[in-house]
């Protein structure tokens, strides 16, 4: 297991008012993402717990592109990773960000 954290400044706050969302599953080659609206609007934090050690550089690149593309200000993402490929990680993060754009019921 390896723990990784990436903190980024964001251009703008994530749209919507939803407080929390979960997507994906912890399984081999897959991952679970928990998104929470708990940070200041200009910050984003991604905390990763992964079964596959030694991919820090790739995570760094994937998270940086995600933050650039979606500007998820105010969101903390907690990832429980079962060795997912980078394309799956990008997709799950985007799915989580989209869920957070919904309005809280």
């Amino acid at each position: 297991m390896e723990d990784l954290n990436f903190r980024h400044a964001t251009r703008q706050r994530a749209a919507g008012t939803r407080k929390l969302a979960v997507i994906g599953v912890v399984a081999s080659g897959n991952l679970e993402v928990l998104a929470e609206r708990v940070l200041p609007d200009s910050e984003c934090l991604v905390e990763i717990r992964t079964a596959a050690a030694g991919f820090g550089e790739v995570w760094d690149a994937v998270i940086a592109d995600f933050v650039k593309g979606y500007s998820p200000g105010g969101l903390r993402f907690s990832i429980n990773d079962g060795g997912a490929r980078p394309d799956t990680v990008s997709l799950r993060l985007a799915q989580a960000a989209r869920l957070m754009e919904e309005d809280d019921q």
């Binding site: 596959a52 991919f55 060795g83 490929r85 980078p86 394309d87």
Partner: peptide
């Protein structure tokens, strides 16, 4: 194909 295959 996907950029990464089986076992990354």
């Amino acid at each position: 194909g996907e950029t990464f295959g089986e076992k990354n």
